[in-house]
Write a protein that binds this DNA or RNA. Structure first.
Length: 101
DNA sequence: TGGTTGACAAACC
DNA sequence: CGGTTTGCCAACC
């Protein structure tokens, strides 16, 4: 196992862990925080691979449109449980719930 | 070794 | 916000 991959996952999860409840962050936001703004896909890839590795609130991470992860219905309920409302299209109100640092 | 894919983003309409 | 086009970079085949 490459330590590079593990370290990247650690950085991502470390940021994800700092996301407050009832708030969401975009992949680009996290990618920038870990120094990989151009590589927002890597963040998504890692999160998809770890799933719920260590009870990390990866469900608070959405894409730039506020769209949730495809093939993951549970994420919607989790966000609702935090007080995040989703639109009919399934997009989060980034104007209100986007995490600002 | 090299082309395709992707839990994406920014720019444009 | 929503579709379309382009760009980026690592993983996958």
């Amino acid at each position: 196992m490459s330590k590079l991959n593990d370290d990247l996952a650690y950085e991502i999860l470390s940021v994800v862990e700092e996301i407050p409840a009832g708030r969401v962050a975009t992949y680009g936001q996290i990618a920038k925080l870990i120094g990989r703004e151009k590589n927002s896909r890597l963040v998504a890839r890692v999160l998809s691979h770890v799933g719920n590795y260590g009870e990390f609130p990866c469900y608070r991470v959405v894409n730039h449109m506020g769209r949730l992860a495809p093939g993951w219905a549970e994420q919607e309920w989790l966000l609702k449980g935090e007080g995040v409302t989703l639109k009919e299209n399934g997009c989060v109100d980034l104007k209100k719930y986007l995490w600002e640092c």
